[in-house]
Design a protein around this nucleic acid. Sequence first.
DNA 1: CAACAATACTCGTTGTAACGAATATTGTCA
DNA 2: TGACAATATTCGTTACAACGAGTATTGTTG
Lengths: 153, 153
Amino acid sequence: MKQKVHSGSKPKLKECLEEEAYLELCRTTDLLSRRLGGLLKAEDLSANQYNILRILRGSPDGLPCGEIGNRMITRDPDITRLLDRLEKRELITRCRETKDRRMVMARIAPGGLKLLAELDEPVREAHAGQLAHLGRKRLWALMELLQEARSEG
Amino acid sequence: MKQKVHSGSKPKLKECLEEEAYLELCRTTDLLSRRLGGLLKAEDLSANQYNILRILRGSPDGLPCGEIGNRMITRDPDITRLLDRLEKRELITRCRETKDRRMVMARIAPGGLKLLAELDEPVREAHAGQLAHLGRKRLWALMELLQEARSEG
DNA sequence: CAACAATACTCGTTGTAACGAATATTGTCA
DNA sequence: TGACAATATTCGTTACAACGAGTATTGTTG
């Protein structure tokens, strides 16, 4: 996920505005991601693993693997292996659904909740430290623009 | 003024605006990156390799490996191997500097220029297709906000 | 029931990122 | 000159992403 983009040369005339905007986006995301990455690495979590945990925390009833795959845009064999690692560390649990026994529901486990809870504060502080200087107004403006950017892709 | 007291349940983490903005940023960058990723994969280029080629195109006199590493925020040994792969495909050339013989200058090769040239149009079209609906005004606003976001991290 | 679709999984593969440790060469400076 | 710094490299390691092919189980439908 980490995508690095060169930030050196001045924009050539031929480069279109959309491309420049994309580069800005990459640079910014990359910069902001580094701190978070450091926090996660200290807990031996990959960004994807962290995302899964947060998704599952938001769905206390659990989610089928396929649904996780849809949200992450990741193929199901890869989701399976991601969940394998998380399950081995007892951060999540899996159990087969009784209704539709084709599905396996993944739920966050106490260990996963605890780990997330420990990360919440530093993560929030990291983001605040990096973005608070924008202020509420510009943050809202930024979020709105980003949503609009995705709204018609 | 009366103070509100939490009853029993754990105080919900205040979803801070900065964190939300970061998530929006990630979602947007991720979405936009996928098309580019497809174009690059068709040419067997990783995002990092593509970035290096673009950096080098912007520096016709070549760059020392260390400078590339600085721009990409990537460690020396990894840059070396990235350049190895690019050199093997004759997309770049390397030669030792005569002045300071510790340095090795990497330059883009004709093959690299050609490959980039072939990618320029589809890449630009992809980005335009994804972002043009914002219009110039909002694109500028977005870019400005992103620059400000990085200006104090 | 048979055929098919959906779900998750197993297995294998390749390339890469990221990191640590060590080395050779060269330049700089006290 | 000798000690040190800078540059790039080699080597080894681990984990992960991404992809393809195939399998087992279960549900659905004609």
